[in-house]
Write a protein that binds this DNA or RNA. Structure first.
Lengths: 203, 203
DNA sequence: GTCTATACCAAGATAGAC
DNA sequence: GTCTATCTTGGTATAGAC
């Protein structure tokens, strides 16, 4: 049996993916985790907000790891991006379309009301963008271009989750992934062409 | 003074953009609208869910109209898309980063819990995708390509709102808009090139 | 660290006078 | 159509024994 704290985190993660922050009660959490209220407040003395912050931070780190696995499998960032979208689509279909990512839902709910949670989500998104950005740089993009493109990919990923869950069909995630892949490929091609021209000019 | 029903809808729209569905109480709505509980239940007998459904449907229709205005201003869909993102970025900055769109937030919150609201959001997103898709078809894309690309643009739009609100900076919306614009331009170019080749081959 | 009971408050919804 | 009072439920959080 997993440690109590881990069960609480895992249960909250899944409940947030289904119902979001305000839509999930601590009663649901303790029931799903099989843990009493006392334990919850033992591990998270500041209550729901502290629990949510832990879920955001820890889930964010595990998704970062997951993306790094995809990226490590190839030197082609476009392929890694496409594969990541395809994996997310699969997850959606196998989970009755509960959100793939608790962070996007919660971030959108609390961005104007819980500044601490907003900050935690901000750090997570930034870590993802930085990671993808590094890979895009390694493949030939300038830093500014790489970061902006990485942010677009993350935005498209999060947005495609909204559409897929709303229509209960994950194909939009796959199509969006394909589009992101061609966008990445095109930008890399442009960068290489510019580099070629400069070489031709003796730069 | 606007009619009571209109004030209730407008107040709810703004409150949803700030705090989402579960994060907004009917007390907040009646306070902001300056309307008593009795009036709210007079216009929306099934309560909060019915009110939310009306907000989604009516806001969705007004954003559709707004996009059609942008699209009517030019025969270049890429330009219309870019301008729409820029306008949204402006709105975010001027509103303390409350969401541009109450529908995306609410859709993500209730997709697994309120099927009626999910359905209403689905119809709205579909109407946007269909509208943009038509313009992309008119510019030369095949129907399937046009619909898929339109969905990607809507996904990127919604996703960029999440990132922008989370980091309290709307530049990501502008950058995403630029990327969507180049994506649209590239796909239209490809379609035209394919058409040219076919002409060259005497098709 | 765990458990139960409970305090306290805000939520959505309803009733019935006007 | 409007207004106020109120019902009921469920929310977060705490207390204190074990």
């Amino acid at each position: 049996m997993a440690a109590t704290r881990d069960r609480i985190i895992a249960a909250t993660n899944e409940l947030f993916r289904r119902g979001g922050y305000n839509g999930t009660s601590l009663r649901q959490v303790t029931d799903a985790a099989g843990a009493p209220t006392g334990s919850l407040y033992h591990f998270f003395p500041r209550g729901k907000a502290e629990l949510a912050e832990a879920v955001i931070t820890e889930t964010g780190a595990s998704y970062l790891e997951l993306f790094e696995l995809f990226a490590a499998a190839t030197s082609d960032p476009g392929a890694a991006v496409g594969a990541f979208f395809d994996g997310a689509a699969e997850t959606l279909e196998q989970s009755d379309y509960i959100d793939v990512c608790p962070i996007g839902t919660v971030a959108r709910e609390v961005a104007n009301t819980h500044d601490r949670l907003r900050g935690a989500a901000d750090r997570v998104f930034s870590s993802w963008i930085e990671s993808l950005g590094k890979h895009l740089e390694a493949a030939g993009l300038a830093t500014t271009e790489a970061t902006a493109l990485a942010a677009t990919v993350v935005a498209a990923l999060e947005g495609s989750f909204v559409l897929a869950r709303t229509r209960r069909n994950a194909d939009v995630v796959r199509h969006t992934g394909n589009h992101m892949r061609s966008l990445v490929d095109a930008q890399l091609r442009d960068a290489h062409n510019r580099a070629q021209v400069n070489v031709g000019r003796g730069r």
